[in-house]
């Protein structure tokens, strides 16, 4: 009787363990499937976006010639006399981007050099989070900061400055991008092996020579990758330029007048009452494709440079 009970509980125990094992296996399989679905979802979303962009773009180019699109200097899809010259939007994008990069790259690289080569650990722990706060401010705040603070301020020095202009939008966008440049460049400089610095000091280098003649060039491909990513970020930035740079497509490099960037145009049409399915409406997809192509190539270059940099040191 007792032996029987023993056998019985043993049987139960084994059954339970087997079952437990099965449950664990089942759970793991379920989790694996779920994770797979999540990653497939993001791949599918990307594919979907590309499909929509491309099909709308192809539709657009059935009505407008590619040559006109690339060479015409007027962009007036809403007028009776329609022009579809992307150059006027592109020039707006390039001017704001140029100004932003002119601000972000020098300041970002100086702070990266300071953080990587000069700052004590304590200073680094104070300054890095402060810089990262810059990146955490919502872009709409930067937009109104440009429109309501920077532009009036600049107008005291530049009387001809319009209320909407590329200059203040670009400047503020540059400030916003500083943390991107500095944190990626600092990573690249930090990754330069200590042995190279020691080698340079052992030859009688001063600190500034080690920073600029050894560390900086050694980190150059990583730094270039950071700068290209910053350019790509500036080209894609929407809120600041939509708020502060104006809505007047103009083929110009003058930063003092209202312009319109590709991104701002997309916002303008998306929020307006242009009927879906019209040629006018499809322009936003063409603009989207243009942006996508530019930033895609920039990101690919940046990625390749970064990998080359890692190959050298790892």
């Amino acid at each position: 009787m007792v032996g029987n009970r023993h056998a019985c509980s043993l049987y139960l125990l084994i059954w339970f363990m087997l079952k437990r094992n099965n449950i664990v296996k089942f759970k793991e399989a379920l989790i694996e499937r779920l994770l797979l679905c999540c990653s497939l979802l993001s791949v599918l979303t990307t594919a979907g976006i590309i499909w929509v962009l491309l099909s709308e773009t192809i539709g657009f180019f059935k009505h407008v010639s590619v040559i006109d699109f690339l060479t015409d200097t007027q962009w007036t899809p809403m007028f009776t006399n329609k022009h579809f010259g992307i150059l006027s939007l592109l020039s707006g994008t390039l001017v704001t981007t140029f100004i932003a990069i002119a601000v972000a790259v020098p300041l970002g690289l100086i702070s990266a050099t300071y953080l990587s080569e000069y700052a004590t650990d304590k200073m680094r722990h104070i300054i890095k989070p402060l810089l990262e706060i810059l990146a955490a401010v919502p872009t709409v705040v930067y937009g109104y900061f440009a429109l309501l603070f920077v532009t009036p301020l600049l107008r005291q020095f530049i009387p001809g400055l319009s209320g909407f202009n590329a200059l203040s939008a670009g400047l503020v966008m540059g400030i916003m991008i500083i943390p991107l440049v500095s944190s990626l460049s600092e990573d690249a400089m930090h990754a330069v092996p200590m042995g190279l610095r020691e080698g340079a000091y052992a030859l009688g280098s001063h600190k500034i020579q080690v920073a600029f003649k050894i560390v900086f060039p050694a980190a150059l491909s990583g730094i270039t990758a950071a700068v290209i990513l910053a350019v790509s970020r500036a080209i894609g930035e929407t809120m600041i330029v939509a708020i502060a740079a104006g809505q007047q497509p103009k083929f110009t490099v003058n930063p003092l007048v209202p312009i319109e960037t590709i991104t701002a145009y997309i916002v303008q049409i998306s929020l307006g009452d242009t009927p879906h399915g019209t040629l006018e409406y499809s322009t936003i997809f063409v603009c989207g494709t243009t942006l996508f192509v530019i930033t895609f190539f920039l990101n690919v270059i940046s990625f390749k440079l970064k990998r080359r940099f890692q190959e050298i040191y790892e």
Partner: peptide, 20 residues
């Protein structure tokens, strides 16, 4: 010490040529 390091050179355990 920067000046004196020119008179007292050093070769390290792991070869560390500059990437130049």
């Amino acid at each position: 010490i920067t000046d004196l390091r020119r008179e007292i050179g050093m070769v390290f355990q792991k070869p560390n040529p500059f990437p130049k």
